[in-house]
Nucleic acid binder design. Structure first.
Lengths: 207, 207, 207, 207
DNA sequence: GATGAATGAGTGTTCATTCAT
DNA sequence: CATGAATGAACACTCATTCAT
């Protein structure tokens, strides 16, 4: 356990197995034995790298938090409003898709584990909302977007992305999964920029 | 199990306790013993009314499904678009709030229990989406709303409502919880009807 | 678990098995499974009556303490010094013999478990010493015994009884085990009353 | 294991660490890892010098046995009875004090490990008793001491010394620990030579 | 019907021991 | 020789479920 790199590799290997088992079975039903088997090691070995089963979960939460932080570093201030929003939505959809396993792994425990809930909502959801808020409010200042209640609109947008992603993940044969990700982005941009009202002047504005 | 009414009452009594314990502890951590204690009966008695612990969960899912079905029977076809949408959103927010316990009780297991997931998404989320879809598409036909991809927009709206509700429930001191439910509805109506673009003609339309 | 008597009986049954297994194997090597087997019950049942394995040990310590307290209530103030001392020694020897199992059960843990050590020395050994001290000091006051340092003499006497008992228990074929308990008492009385010096006048005093 | 001296040093180093950890935690709770850490080596290294954990314990028993044998080689045949007895008692008290760690290290296992018990009682306690017996019986032959049952008296004396030592070690604030070792020796000499009876002629004999 | 004591399979975790480096 | 990561058997403890009362 001397070489930091080897330790990191082992941890990764174990966490990968943990993600798979947690996502499939849920945290509680997942057994350390099964995680070890999936990682191709003995159960005892896990305890050389993590204090206990729960530390696996917290490490996964940490991974998600780090990835969320990275994903937020999206550039694109020079884009027009429409493209900017599309970029953000596309990024978020991809983030959920790419971190599906992690999200599923945490999904069963977030609701009853206070520490985990605090981490997840405090360091993933709220920052995502906050970051979106920043970019968008800027456009408000420029007059490109109208003023709005960010504390309502942002969660609404993020929640929309999440549920669409969840439906596409969990019910791949539902109508929500039939469209391409890009089509979803287009439709959401339309919704969030112009709403559903029938505006005559909107015709030339869209696409 | 002779008298149907008494049996129903007992089942209710047990399910109420189960909701409380599942919501607080999550399905897996909840013990039959604790549910029995909360219901004021002996653990063994539960097994006279439910085959096993999991049947409690399925019964709760059933309850939620029934309540969702009832909640969808909202009238109001004579209202203008704006009021109609507000009514729907208000209803959904209330539904989540009033069934908070049930939703939390199911939250931990939905992600890994295929049968439960099928029930929840198939008989709660999709019907809610479908019902909304129906009402709203009608307005499209009347030309009051523009045409849109229902399979994207509806999940987006429902997901928005869910996340806003979740944030208000799980982080009561977050900004999302500061506004009244009516203010949230107003803001969502604005968002979903007109979007965020700055339309001059929108000014007099808001509030 | 309603009837106090039945609960007590079950506890006794379990503790009896625990004494046997602890005495034979030592606390650490003893397994709950084996205790359960010896008690003729399932392992899980033990946990209905004791919080954990250690509680078994503490309960045994408690039993020993209670028995030691009872054993100290020895009468006999009207006896002459010689008979009184013989009575005390005989009682103590018997106490050790009769509580052999309990003593062996505690023997392995007393040295490293602070709480247990405090209980054992504080509530068994020291009271035994203290009680002996009382009776004997009284004789000093009457001039029947010479003044002495109780804090040295009493531990010396108790330690002597303990080691003799231990040798008789653990090495039944050693010379120490060849004599009858009564002969041991006689010899100890001689030792503690008159010492080993050759006193001419002592001859007629002995036996 | 080439150089006998280096090997011996390593063994000593490991055994010293083992004494410390066994004494503090007891044999079963002590971990090989902790012993290695205390010895400043890797766990695996211990197995180059000892077959297994138990061999450490047996080696410690051996050390104690060797030290006990050395300690018995006490001269002093030219002393008067009183001084001789004082010398023996003083030696034994010192032996216990100086080998406190070893004794504590063995204390938890002696009661359940037959081989260890045989070694400890057979090669430490009984020889100590036997040696004392020899010296003292000689005095009996010379008429300086009265005849007595060595198999009772010697264990009584040794047991006394042990318990006094134990109390002084484990309860340093008890009355037994208040006196100096020399005062203890004095009091024991008085006890074992003259007993507790009030003998007029004893006055000038003591001290 | 109701009880709740009993069950025992199943889990997280520890740790003596091995062995490739 | 020395290392220390890996092993996996073993154990305390939990808890859904049963069933005699």
């Amino acid at each position: 356990m001397a070489e930091p790199q080897e330790v990191q590799d082992r941890r990764e290997q174990i966490l990968e197995a943990a993600v798979a088992v947690f996502a499939e079975r849920g945290y509680q039903r997942a057994t350390v034995k099964e995680i070890a088997a999936r990682a191709g090691i003995a159960p005892g070995t896990i305890y050389l790298y993590f204090r206990n089963k729960r530390e696996l979960l917290l490490a996964l939460a940490d991974t998600l938090i780090r990835r969320a932080a990275e994903a937020l570093l999206a550039p694109g201030d020079d884009l027009d409003v429409r493209s900017r929003l599309a970029l953000i939505l596309r990024d978020r959809l991809r983030f959920v898709r790419e971190n599906q396993g992690l999200l599923r792994a945490l999904a069963t425990e977030i609701w009853t584990d206070r520490e985990l809930a605090a981490q997840f909502f405090g360091e993933v959801i709220l920052p995502v909302i906050g970051a979106g808020s920043l970019y968008i409010q800027e456009r408000v200042a420029r007059g490109e977007l109208r003023p709005f209640q960010a504390e309502v609109v942002l969660p609404a947008v993020v929640g929309g992305i999440l549920l669409i992603s969840i439906l596409r993940m969990m019910a791949p044969d539902s109508p929500a999964a039939a469209l391409s990700e890009e089509e979803v982005v287009e439709e959401l941009v339309r919704l969030y920029l112009h709403g559903l009202c029938s505006h005559p002047e909107e015709e030339w504005d869209v696409r």
